[in-house]
Each structure stands twice: as structure tokens, then as C-alpha cells.
Design a protein around this nucleic acid. Sequence first.
DNA 1: ACGTGTCGCTAACACGTTATAGTGGGTGCC
DNA 2: GGCACCCACTATAACGTGTTAGCGACACGT
Lengths: 333, 333
Amino acid sequence: MAPRSSRVTSADVAREAGVSRATVSFVLNNTQHQKITEATRQRVLAAAERLGYAPSAAARTLRYGRSDVVLGLLPDWPLGFAAGQLIQELTLAFAKRNFTFVVHSSIRGARSLSEIWKALTPAAVLAFEPFSDADAAAMRSAGIEVIAALYDDKGLGSDESITTANAIGAAQARHLAASHGRLGYAYPDDERVAVFSRPRLDGVRKVCAELGLPDPDVRTVPLTPSAAADAVRSWLAADPPVTGICAFNDDVAMTVLAGLRHLGLQAPRDMAVIGVDNSPAAAVSCPPLTSVVQDLPAIAELYADTVTVALDGAQSPGNPVEPQIRLEVRESA
Amino acid sequence: MAPRSSRVTSADVAREAGVSRATVSFVLNNTQHQKITEATRQRVLAAAERLGYAPSAAARTLRYGRSDVVLGLLPDWPLGFAAGQLIQELTLAFAKRNFTFVVHSSIRGARSLSEIWKALTPAAVLAFEPFSDADAAAMRSAGIEVIAALYDDKGLGSDESITTANAIGAAQARHLAASHGRLGYAYPDDERVAVFSRPRLDGVRKVCAELGLPDPDVRTVPLTPSAAADAVRSWLAADPPVTGICAFNDDVAMTVLAGLRHLGLQAPRDMAVIGVDNSPAAAVSCPPLTSVVQDLPAIAELYADTVTVALDGAQSPGNPVEPQIRLEVRESA
DNA sequence: ACGTGTCGCTAACACGTTATAGTGGGTGCC
DNA sequence: GGCACCCACTATAACGTGTTAGCGACACGT
């Protein structure tokens, strides 16, 4: 009724309904072990509705000692199509578990990591970037669950990191190995994505070893047609020539395709290329790009389950199914 | 020293340093009007460091009534390259102003808008999606500044919305009008991006009117080569034929290029195409795509300034420069 | 010796919420 | 009528912080 400029609190609702703050809390939180007359309940609900009461998350967090916010920490590499999609799936997956998922892009020159989680008091941090042990320890001592969604090359915290990244490279390699005797890897020209590129390359390496193929010929491919042409020349000049290329993602793959065109060559006749992400551009590149499709909803569910289990100690409701990898086969391979 | 499982509070620091909590607060916040002996100051700082003290953001927010979090609300359309870049620039711009910028993707089926800001108590909300007046009113009554970074087709809250979107369409149209008498617009097949596509189209319309050209021929282009081919056929069959196409973004533009190839035609000979975003794929498409480059850092600064001014009532430090639009001219137009 | 300041610090309150202990009033039982 | 007991609700204590009022000690001027 009276739109105070300040925040409307539970005390306002209590006054409006003619009850105590405790009763308001009982009604609005449906406290089980507390009986409330139906008349009183309705009066409180009506008052809350009329005043537009919204409980203060800060006070609630202070009281509970934990908020329902899960903070996603993104590194500062350029966010592509898949990253955006994963963010949306994570938002949905956490919402289903009554958590609020927000993302902070920890760009260089911005606030330090400690500033971030101190400002948010998240219940958990889902990190897609590496950070120091000191930071991790500080977060834990503040009662924050830390989940690293990273490839652990140091074997550090391996029990908390989940990765399906090497399955991607493996899928690429298996598809190409059917018709190519020597594989190459188009590595991104940006060390900031190493947390993703390394495990993908490892997956290719593993499959090559399994199938008795020689180790893949790895070349860094900057995102310009001429640089890609250089890489293509080197691959074809090798002995035996490298004719099947696993690319880090669709952007790199399409750059390799541009390099081929630059040399007057064609995919897949002269060289087969496979990307990752199945971005919109992949469907309309020339030739249309074969790409690895991750089951991002399943991956998001897996992450969300991991966090939920770590937080509540509750067991995962569903069976912990490994996210599947699918190949969208077009013309480039 | 003693790694308590629970949170380390300022009281712990006070006990460790042998002073009161108030003194700890004075030291750590550098309270000006309060003199503290250098010895005491050092003792407190040492104790805080030793215990790894991190002030509770929840308590601080409760005390101040406002957090330093700015919440970015993203709609549920697929996030592309430009969106990711804008997020990073916004993170940087807000960090420079001592705000923590986080993003929530309000995907359909996830938590309602009110759940989000209730859970975060942000100081301001920077919305890239439309929401109801009731939501806006509720946020305001909770003391949250609401900034709509939207194209206002209803003239609603025009004083708070900032848009440079029509400048994009205008830049496309001006470039094409130099050599094409009739322009077309490749409209995205997703109404969720209407907040961006409409003003861009309006920019094209405005320039066409200014230059005495007929109104642009607008066609919705789904992201498949065959659908794009249909659109291309229609454009070329018009009288006079439409030979200059402004596309909503690079993805749509590259689909139009695929449609051209599908018909055995070439850009820019048979039809010129301009995209928006200058995504990595645009540089390696065939032919390489001419694209509009937004000055995302400047746009981010503008948004951040708008929010800061609304919050503190402070005047913008720099001159409110209009973000510039640049054209990356390649071969497609 | 005594008021007057200043210095350096502490006690206490408020922010808004939830949970626990407690309280007045009605009812049943003997 | 007195006692126990349940019911529906209230008073109050935390959660951790920033801030204001205040307090003892000491210096200083007269």
C-alpha cells in the first residue's frame, strides 16, 4: 500500500497482517513442524502479496551460511557457440536443482578471483579455468565447494575434475582412421584454450596408438587462410602424406578448409577435415563441415549432479550416465 | 593457523590480534576519521593474513543494503561470438568501476526472473531481454536499478534504454548503396532475437529512405543452404532485382553465401552480402565475408557508465562518446 | 589541582532473516 | 476446581558486518 522507498521487509508484512515476524517466516517458508491457522496463513499471504514482499537474499544467506548461487568461472578466451550453449544448459540444469547459476568471465585486468567470490558468497564454484592452490584453499576455508571442470594434466585434484574432452578427439580420429592412414591435428593458436585443446589432442593420440597408426602430425593453425595454407602444404608434403585432419574446433577446421581453397585443393578429395561444436557456420561452409556434437545437456546435468552431490552429500538421483559424443557427418570428411 | 571448518570471521581476527571487532573493521576498511596506532594496524593486518580472513559478502550486503554485483540478464537465444565478447568487455568495464559483473542466462523453463534477483540482490540489472512492468516495478521497490539495454519499440522507458543497433544496419546499407540500386534484408528465423534484428532492419530502412532507394526487400532466411537458395532466387527474380543483401549477422550472411553457391552463383558478382559481428568464421568463408564491426569495448563502457551514473548519481567521468561502427571490408561486398 | 581536549580504542546497535525456547489460553481429565 | 497438555503464536537469539556513541588515559594550559 505505502510504497516506501526503502526495502519492504518481513516486519512490514507482519505489521500489515497483525502478526509477529516469526509467524510470517513460518507461513512463507511452509515450516512443517509449526501449525498455523488457515485464516492467519491467508492473512499473511495476502499482506505479503499486497506489499510486494521479497525476502532479502543477503539476510537469508547470512542466516543459512550458504547461498543458492553457483558461480561459473570462465577463462578469458573468446567464447564461441558451444560455450554459450553450455552456459544455457548449465543454467537450466542448476535451476532444476534449485540453484541459481551465474557466470563470471575472469578477463585479464579485471578483478582478482578472490574479489569475485567474496562479492557473491556462492555455494559452489564451477571453474573452467585453472587457479592457484591458494585461491582454492581460501575458497574452501570460506565454505565454498570448488569443482574444477578441467583437464587435470598434473593429476591434481583428479577426484573432483570431470572431463569428457578426450572422447571428442577420439571420435574424430576413429572416423578419419577408417579411410586415412596418417592423421594430423590442427592446434589452436591460443594457449589460453590449452585446457580444452590438450585433452582433445590426447584423445586423438590414444586412438592412433590403439589402431596402430603413427602419432598425429600436430600443427598450430592461426585463424588466417594463408597460415592455414602453410599448414596444409606441410601436411601434404609429409611422408606418408597427412590427409585426415582433426581440428580443435569448427573455426580452426573452417580455416583449414580456407587454406585448402587457397591452394586450389578440395575437401575431402585432397584432405578430410573434422571440426568440433557443430556451430551454425559449419553447416554452410564450403564444403559443409563434418563436426563433433557434444551432448551439452547431458554434460550440464553431469556437472550439476557433481556439484549437488558435493554440496548436499546427497546421492545423484539419476544414473551417472557418461555423456555421449555424436558425429554430424557432412561433406568435409 | 587453526583451520576451523567454519568460516573465519572478523571476531576471530580480533581475538587473534587482541583487539575488538570494531578495530579490525577500522583497519581493514581504512576508515578515515578513525586514528589507529601503526603497531595495532600491523598486528591486525598480520592476524587477518595469518587466518586467511575474507569478509562475508552477505553480511556486508545486508549492512550496506546494496551489493556491488551488477547482473546481466541474457535472453535464451543462442549466444554467438559477439555476445561472448560483449560479456567479457562488460566484465572489464564494470571491474574498472569496482563492480562485479555476472551473467545469468534466463533460459525458458529455468527459474523465474524474480527468483534470480532475489537470490543475488544485485545493485543493478542490465537487461538484454524484455520483461514485464511488474517485474521492473518489483525490482525497483527492492532498491535495484534497472537498465534496459534494449530497443524500445513501444517508447517505453526510453530514457533508460540505450541502443546503437540501428547504426549497424545503417552502415551496411550505406556501403551497399554505393553500387546497388535495390537492397534486401536477410532476417533471422528466430523471433527471440527480434530485439536486435528489428532496430538493425530499421537502420537499413532509414538509410534507404534517405538515399531515395526503395524500401529493402526483407526475407526470413533459415540457417540451411536450400532455404537461403530460395531467398536468393526470390531476390534476383524481383524487378528491379535485389543485388545487395544486409544480413542480420555473420551466420545468416554465410548462409546466404551458401545459397548463392547452391545456385551456382558467386558473391559479390551476382549478389553482395554484408554480415555483422566479424566472427572468426567470416574471415575464412568463401568468399571472405565483409562484416560490420562494433566497438564492443566502447559499448561496454557506455553501458557501465549508464549504470554507474544511475547508481551513484555521479556524473560520467569521460565524455559520453557514441560508440563507433566500423566496416571490415573483405570480398563479399 | 582541575577543566578541556585529543587519542586510541571498545561496547552496542542495526541490517533482515530463520530457528528455538517460551507463553497465554483453551480443553480434557480426574 | 486443579492439573496436565496441546495449540497457535510470540519473543529472542543468532548469522557477520559497519558505524556511532562513548570511555579511560594522558597531555596541556592556567
